[in-house]
Design a protein around this nucleic acid. Structure first.
Length: 434
RNA sequence: GGAGAGAUGGCCGAGUGGUCGAAGGCGCAUGCCUGGAAAGCAUGUAUACGGGUAACCGUAUCGAGGGUUCGAAUCCCUCUCUCUCCGCCA
């Protein structure tokens, strides 16, 4: 969320940002008018409160004094009731003003919640076609045999038919060696992340509405997430562990020395894929439920750039260790996520599709999420300030399984297990060997 | 699910209608003391919003929301959360 004062004082920057993000439609001018009205109401409400407080205090003091010696009372009783009557009117006026204010505050909040983060200067302008290729790693090998898509491998170990029976489309069942491979990947990712200074967290996968707002999923992306029904309709299924991890320190003022706080979590992720009907309908590419290892870092503003770079590098190293060909893209303004200032995508080579597909978005959100979530830290001058929040997948299991199955498949439809996973695979060097 | 207890500042904890943004302690910061440190002493130490170049001023906040009152941390109602005991349960 952007600071209301910032929006008030820099409406042109906000408008320009909306244009760059191809997200026009937010009524900035309307917001300015609303703020004008809100601030004038606020002023008169506070002035009336001051008047009321002073008068009430005076009554209190007089009462104290009259208690002590038994002085003359005179017709003080009459005066008192008259004064009280006018104060009562004042109180009612205040109540009315505050009612109107509350309404405007809600509108203000709704508008600010709907504004995306300011895009970083370094992000190229345009939609996804303007994304910039930063670097590429790994060789694209020509196989001597026809490549099979991942869902044509593994026979009964990758079972979409039964998954449909249990749950419907966009669900999967992994069995045997394939399930083990998924677990091996998860363990490998987690252990690498831990070695790189991230603390493992096992958080809830169901979070309340407030958590969804705080990390930026709501209100804009209500269609993309699953929500429980009935008595538990305040709970949402997380679409990424980022939600749980960012909310860990919501409403806290952190000791400066605690930063950076680096967390990694292995969780299921749930997405409605509302806008993706008909896309990636086969295989593991786009599911309602998938598993992912996520990174989140809360760090000092002056360190967030370096932190961003090192998190991308960490995710890249995982792909390198698996020997998967990938490339790194700097996302253009129109393709960068709602909460992010700047975002790098890691894309891995998918042989059956003959193209790179996204496996990780590494975002620097600046203070956007922390302001929303009221995460602060104590500066050395004693004042509280918002730290920066960053997140990255490292890495998602489904899409990495696809990449492993397809990139390392053999002529006999078996698949070579990447060497770094052997120890997690009870020494298996191949799976699907008949 | 049944019965009970509780929620106050970074932490602990006092406070049952007025001078309470809130005693006291811990922690932290600065200064004095010291060869240096500890102890001791002194001073300071919440957040948000609005106004002001600033010093500062105003308003709000004692789990959340509502009510009573001239005035609420304190009284009333609703909700949320935490803890203890019993029952059930992976």
């Amino acid at each position: 969320m952007l600071d209301s004062r910032f929006v008030r004082n820099n409406p042109d920057i906000v408008k320009e940002n909306l244009r760059r993000r191809h997200a026009e439609g937010a009524d900035v001018e309307g917001f300015l008018l609303l703020e004008q009205r809100r601030l004038s109401l606020l002023k008169s409400s506070e002035e009336k409160k001051q008047e009321r407080n002073l008068a009430a205090k005076k009554i209190g003091q007089e009462k104290q004094q009259s208690k002590q010696p038994s002085e003359n009372k005179g017709d003080g009783f009459l005066e008192e009731t008259a004064a009280r009557a006018s104060l009562k009117t004042l109180s009612q006026e205040i109540k009315q003003l505050d009612g109107q204010l509350a309404e405007l505050n809600l509108k203000q909040d709704a508008f600010l919640q709907s504004l995306p983060n300011l895009i970083d200067e370094s992000s190229p302008e345009g939609d996804e076609r303007a994304n910039v290729l930063l670097r590429q790693h790994g060789k694209l090998e020509e196989k001597t045999f026809p490549i099979k898509a991942h869902f044509e491998l593994g026979q009964t170990q990758l079972d979409f038919k039964r998954a449909a029976k249990l749950s419907g489309a966009r669900f999967s069942i992994l069995k045997g060696e394939l399930a083990m491979l998924e677990r091996a990947l998860a363990n490998f990712f987690l252990e690498q992340n831990i070695q790189n200074g991230f603390t493992e967290v096992s958080p809830p996968s169901l979070v309340n509405e407030q958590s969804m707002y705080r990390s930026g999923q709501l209100p804009k992306f209500a269609d993309d997430v699953f929500r429980l029904a009935g008595d538990f309709s305040y709970l949402y299924l997380i679409s990424t562990a980022e939600i749980s991890l960012v909310n860990l320190h919501a409403d806290e003022i952190l000791d400066r020395d605690l930063l950076p706080l680096r967390y990694t979590a292995y969780t299921n992720c749930y997405r409605s894929e509302a806008g993706a009907a008909g896309r990636d309908t086969r295989g593991l590419m786009r599911l309602h439920e998938f598993k992912k290892v996520e990174l989140v870092s809360i760090c000092l503003p002056e360190e967030s750039e370096a932190e961003h770079q090192s998190m991308v590098l960490l995710a890249e190293k995982l792909l390198q260790a698996l020997k998967l060909p990938y490339r790194v893209m700097l996302l253009a303004s129109g393709d960068t996520g709602f909460s992010a200032k700047r975002c790098y995508d890691l894309e891995v080579w998918i042989p059956s599709e003959k193209r790179y597909r996204e496996v990780s978005s590494c975002s620097n959100c600046g203070d956007f999420q922390c302001r929303r979530a009221k995460i602060r830290y104590r500066q050395s001058n004693g004042r509280a300030a918002y730290p920066h929040a960053l997140n990255a997948s490292a890495l998602p299991l489904g899409r990495i399984l696809i990449a492993v199955l397809e990139n390392f498949q053999q002529a006999d439809a078996s698949v070579a297990v990447p060497e770094v996973l052997w120890s997690f695979m009870k020494g298996r060097k191949f799976i699907f060997k008949s």
